[in-house]
Design a protein around this nucleic acid. Structure first.
Length: 580
RNA sequence: GCGCCCGUAGCUCAGCAGGAUAGAGCACAGGUUUCCUAAACCUGGGGUCACAGGUUCGAAUCCUGUCGGGCGCGCCA
């Protein structure tokens, strides 16, 4: 039950009735109307801007229209009072019966509380991580990985039909380098002294296992072949094993993609050829010259003709090359084919989670989707994640790529645990830089938001356990009398719970899972406050053996809070802690 | 030169779908425990929402411009 969309519905109904009576125009655009909790609780439970938004199209003064709408709402069973305030806000005070009904429905929904059909089954593809299969994931991949995963879960919970996808960049020069690096490790595994890894090859120890596997499978056969024959073998094996490594790393963070899509397969199936000639037939491709970028001109710039996609016709800043000077396709060409494949699979929205250094991709991805599917057919949503700065006790953690000293995703997860990583990665807006201090995130204090939220959940579980030993066993929400919840701290929590479904919807529409993390922090804060209030005022304690009905009610209330908290944590991919 | 992101309290950041008097944590000062986890809570000061215009009944939020910071700009993926 979403109280706010319920109230929005009543407002819309009131407008329909007024239109039927000829008091306002019919067919007004109601899309900009909101029903939301007012910032100041003294204004009531729900506030709507309907009169202000519709005043002009209705040809009425805001307050006059507000009077008309208010007249229709007055007397409804769920509404205790209607008032008009300020420039034309309509403030609703809900009747006493609404909150108990809400809490009962929350408890009935349980683990599904907060879910909605907002997305109406729209097919959404969320592509995230998509790191090159040339080694283990490093810490820089953490944020996009967690963000994409939480976003996918959020969209799923709000009624979108989501596919979680990973694009494997297994074509091109970088995986050739990988294949050569693996070949070297293969010779090493056969007993050869390979000395220093030459510059230009991947030095990481993680390729030793690939070399050993190749040696076990092929003996010294490959050494007798020319490169064009052994490279496909070592490359394929290395990619395979690197992808296993990456899948393991992701699993350690509780991330599981549904589709792993191979770039190479697009070339081998001819999909790239097909999509390029398709664009050619539509006239979106031409041969021409690009102007060098202004400002710093690259030293090796060489003016030349190339095959270009007319991206500027679809809002991009420059046209994008499809073929390299050796006539092979560019990475961008396979990207086009990949977009086409996603579109052909029926996705109406393509979400890309990328690093902030990929900001330049946004327009070209949108341009491609428009050129392939037509204007407005497919939404392209690109979410950029800023860098994570690692600290240890306030000191920056230095990483040297040259020396191969980089902190892997696995290092971080092994040290602090997946829940801490996930929560912290989501406790900032994605486009804001994020500081991650190993010491702070494992601290057991309120300075550490992960702990603070988990502690609140554990405290609730603790009360429920204690209640069992006090003779309060099963909790039937229908025997609780929620009208007994009268304290302001209790009501604040009830209102906070009621905001959860709306929060999920707005977070989903904005593609901003971090809002859930902040919501959980606030919910925890209000719970801790209520808990401590019980120290000063024993009447507010949860377990009062002498007052059976009140205790049952409060236990049911706690269970409701617990659902909201657990559901939010689960959505972010954390396991709610029952005991600390 | 062009494009994208960011600019909110001393610090780190929220600000929900344009709403009413802009919030939280840290830091600083003080207080709370015979009692469900004090691993917590309460009280207090602190703001030209970078700046200037515009749209609107209403702007931290949308648009334009300026300043400041980050990222990117053909034949890498």
């Amino acid at each position: 039950m979403n109280l706010f969309s319920h109230m929005l519905g009543l407002v819309a109904k009131a407008l329909d009735e007024l239109a039927a009576e000829g008091k306002v125009a019919s067919g007004l655009d109601v899309s900009r109307i909101t029903a939301e909790p007012p910032r100041d609780p003294s204004h009531g439970d729900v506030s709507t801007n309907a009169a202000m938004v519709l005043a002009k199209p209705a040809g009425l003064a805001p307050r006059a229209l507000a009077e008309l709408i208010a007249g229709k709402l007055t007397g409804h069973a769920d509404i205790a009072a209607v008032s008009i305030a300020g420039p034309g806000f309509i403030n609703l005070k809900l009747s006493d019966a609404v909150w108990p009904k809400f809490l009962v429905s929350l408890l009935e929904q349980g683990a599904r509380f907060g879910e909605s059909r907002l997305g109406a089954g729209k097919k959404v593809n969320v592509e995230y991580v998509s790191a090159n299969p040339t080694g283990p994931l490093h810490v820089g991949h953490c944020r996009g990985a967690v963000f994409g995963d939480a976003l996918a879960a959020l969209l799923t919970a709000t009624g979108f039909d989501v596919t979680k996808e990973y694009y494997i960049n297994d074509a091109g020069a970088q995986v050739d380098v990988l294949g050569r690096s693996a070949f070297l490790r293969y010779r090493e595994a056969l007993g050869e002294d390979i000395g220093e890894i030459p510059a230009g090859l991947y030095p990481g120890d993680y390729l030793k296992a690939v070399g050993q596997a190749l040696a076990a499978a092929h003996g010294d056969k490959l050494t007798k072949l020319p490169e064009e024959q052994w490279l496909p073998v070592t490359r394929a094996k290395a990619i395979d094993m690197m992808m296993d490594l990456i899948r393991d790393d992701l699993a350690a963070l509780n991330i599981r993609h549904e589709v792993f899509f191979s770039e190479r397969s697009l070339h081998e199936s001819g999909a790239v050829d097909r999509v390029v000639s398709g664009l050619e037939n539509k006239g979106h491709i031409y041969v021409g010259r690009l102007a060098p970028p202004k400002g710093e001109v690259p030293e090796d710039w060489e003016d030349r003709e190339q095959t270009l996609f007319r991206a500027t016709a679809f809002g991009d800043d420059v046209d994008r090359p499809l073929k390299k000077s050796d006539e092979s396709f560019t990475y961008f060409a396979s990207d086009v084919a990949y977009s086409a494949d996603k579109i052909s699979r029926g996705f109406r929205e393509l979400v890309y989670v990328l690093g902030a250094d990929h900001g330049g991709y946004v327009k070209r991805l949108q341009a491609v989707a428009t050129a392939l599917a037509g204007e407005g057919k497919v939404d392209v949503v690109v979410r950029l994640c800023q860098l994570v700065k690692l600290f240890r006790n306030g000191e920056p953690v230095r990483m040297s790529k040259r020396a191969g000293e980089f902190v892997t995703l696995r290092d971080v997860v092994d040290e602090v645990g997946p829940d801490v990583v996930r929560f912290m990665m989501l406790h900032r807006k994605n486009e804001a830089p994020l500081d991650f201090d190993f010491a702070k995130v494992t601290e057991q204090s309120k300075d550490n938001p992960v702990f603070y939220v988990q502690y609140a959940h554990a405290r609730i579980c603790s009360v429920l356990r204690n209640a069992g030993t006090e003779g309060f066993d099963g909790i039937d929400p229908h025997t609780a009398d929620f009208s007994l919840l009268q304290d302001e701290a209790e009501m604040a929590l009830v209102r906070r719970l009621a905001a959860y479904p709306r929060l999920l919807e707005s977070a989903a529409l904005a593609h901003e899972p971090h809002r859930i993390s902040f919501y959980l922090f606030e919910l925890a804060s209000e719970f801790h406050a209520l808990w401590n209030k019980g120290k000063e005022a024993p009447q507010l304690r949860f377990i009062l053996p002498a007052q059976r009905l009140l205790t049952i009610t409060r236990l049911a209330f706690l269970t409701a809070i617990r659902y909201s908290m657990a559901n939010g944590l689960n959505l972010l991919g954390l396991t709610p802690v029952e005991e600390m």
